[in-house]
Design a protein around this nucleic acid. Structure first.
Lengths: 353, 353
DNA sequence: TTGTAGGCGTTATCAA
DNA sequence: TTGATAACGCCTACAA
């Protein structure tokens, strides 16, 4: 790392003009200036013009802090995610930002690092910062939820869960239908003629993985296949987990002809190990993952996957917030559960026909 | 998409307690309450204890808006990037957040969508929101820079460029040494014994790509290779650009035995096309990319690449900001240029030995 | 159409 | 050790 100091200079303190400064210069009251700048109907066009011109000349910038203090609205919302630099979370944030920006909102980002203590701290500082709403995906270590319940009881700040939710009455959620994701992925494999479909389940302590598994099971049942417990492999969500799973599976007498993995990474590992064993995808074995990570489409053999539509999730969460602001102004609170449809992306790894 | 309304209820307006409420309840002045909560030395321990206890009971939350209005510090900084959901930018943001969070700062994210008009608007609203500093990577369409120069002239809000900078006196920058990136990538290929190294240059209108090209050239010269203009291919940064480049190259009599691409995506395209032509990587042709996109390590044949250390970039930018806040308090402004060293990640695609 | 004045919640100065 | 009050910059009844 190089580090070069180029220039050091003393500067004058430039403090920006206020409506007070403008009013003095123009010999009108601050109220007039305020109203002129806000395009109040009962101000003469001439005055407005003059005020606006002078404001520009004096480089006036409205202090939103003062406005917020008065109005009680900061036009800021907070977002708490485990980490921001994953495709999923950064895409959700993008969706929220794009939905809310037209309404004049700014988004404040906090990372919980999967630590409930940090999550609590952020929740508090966001509240202190008077944000108008909080979006969050709970951390992995968030078990008890009184700290969230507590906010609900003591403030009007709406909270919206996305993806990783907790069941708390009064909190709206935006999630995807993981059950359906598992169902359509499995059904797709069936329709391609695969007969012995195996599932990499991920951590079954988590609701989302249980739902995907259930979708898988139901699809099998609906198409008159039997659900074999030995075909449900509890794996992690890593490449190595996928590799290991294949190794174990291929020790058996009868091997599967298709794999539906709850994780793209495990699916990738499976592809790698199958390739190593010269087992042809998709002719001999089909593979389909979950999440539609960017890398899936860049693989040499592009991999099918179930997309969680994160940008849409963010946009929906934004909409739910906007609605709740309106409802709040009527003194009403409506709890909503938005469930998004997962999108199946069919690529070469699962197309035999 | 399913959309289910679960519960609708009327709620009471819960307004949070202020130091006023506490002072009334305790029959002391607001000043005392304020001082007690701020652990002022000349307040009796008894009073402090009492105030703190009552504050907790009344669920008092400090209103940072009022505090900011008084102090002139919001403890918020703004970040403007083209899009948040790319590996590079989201990682830089992560770095900034993690560096600044311990100092009590929150980060506000804005997306310019590569549009200078939107960029200007965000710059303005951030200033209105009284942020204590602004981090930005300029949009592709940002040519003129008076709007930025203007902020410098009329406010004390420090601006820090990262990665995509503009040369504006008074603005600190944090970038990576693209020249060196090009140099070490090329040198690595030379050290692996490749003799005819070709470069995919990217858009040479952009400074970063020119620098990478120059590094490539100098490495060749320093190792007594000749720089052949026909080996410098001006490509885009897409997969297709890489595919096209290979097609064109392989129409020639003498083909290269190594490719240093300024873009991971073009490098990926090259890999795909080479594979199609049954040309072996890295035995016949080596490939190395730039950016170290996550997918490079997940490829069937993991691809070498030059890492831009985005998280470190964010952390450095955060440090520069913290320093500038200190300096500002002394009435001084120091312009800094931080240049980070790129990291070479050597993988199978370029290891012949 | 414009002006006066109070208040949003805090902190800081000056007194007591 | 504590209290009264002004100030931060803006908006908005209420008056004029």
């Amino acid at each position: 790392m190089k580090y070069i100091i180029i220039l050091k200079k003393v500067f004058m303190n430039k403090k920006s003009a206020t409506i007070y400064d403008i009013s003095k210069k123009l010999n009108v009251s601050v109220a007039t200036v305020s109203r002129a700048l806000n395009d109040h109907p009962r101000i003469s066009e001439a005055t407005k013009e003059l005020v606006r011109k002078t404001a520009k000349e004096m480089n006036y910038k409205q202090n939103n802090l003062a406005k917020a203090l008065k109005s009680g609205e900061t036009k800021n919302v907070g977002i708490i995610v485990p980490y921001i630099n994953t495709n999923f979370f950064s895409s959700v944030i993008r969706g929220i930002e794009e939905e809310l920006s037209p309404f004049g909102y700014h988004v404040i980002i906090c990372q919980s690092h999967e630590d409930v203590t940090i999550e609590k701290k952020h929740l508090n500082t966001l509240l202190n910062a008077q944000v108008d709403g909080i979006f969050m995906s709970v951390s992995r270590t968030t078990v008890e939820t009184e700290h969230i319940q507590n906010i609900l009881d003591t403030s009007n700040t709406p909270i919206i869960f996305f993806d990783r939710k907790k069941d708390i009455p009064g909190i709206s959620t935006v999630t995807i239908d993981d059950y359906r994701g598992g169902y359509i992925a499995t059904e797709h494999l069936i329709s391609e003629g695969y007969k012995n479909i195996c599932h990499f389940s991920g951590d079954l302590n988590l609701e989302i993985y249980r739902n995907r598994l259930n979708g898988y099971k139901q699809a099998l049942i609906d198409h008159h296949f039997s659900v074999k417990e030995e075909n449900i492999i509890s794996t992690g969500s890593s490449i190595d987990a996928g590799i290991d799973a294949i190794k174990k599976l291929w020790e058996r007498k009868s091997v599967p002809d298709a794999i539906f993995s709850s994780s793209d990474f495990a699916a990738l590992g499976a592809c790698q190990e199958l390739k190593k064993r010269k087992i042809k995808i998709p002719q001999e074995v089909a593979v389909i993952g979950f999440s539609n990570e960017p890398f899936t489409q860049f693989m040499e053999l592009p991999m099918s996957s179930v997309d969680q539509t994160p940008v849409t999730m963010g946009k929906m969460a934004g909409q739910v917030f906007i609605e709740s602001v309106k409802e709040n102004s009527f003194g009403v609170s409506i709890e909503k559960k938005v469930v998004l449809a997962p999108q199946l992306h069919i690529r070469k790894s699962s197309k035999r026909k």
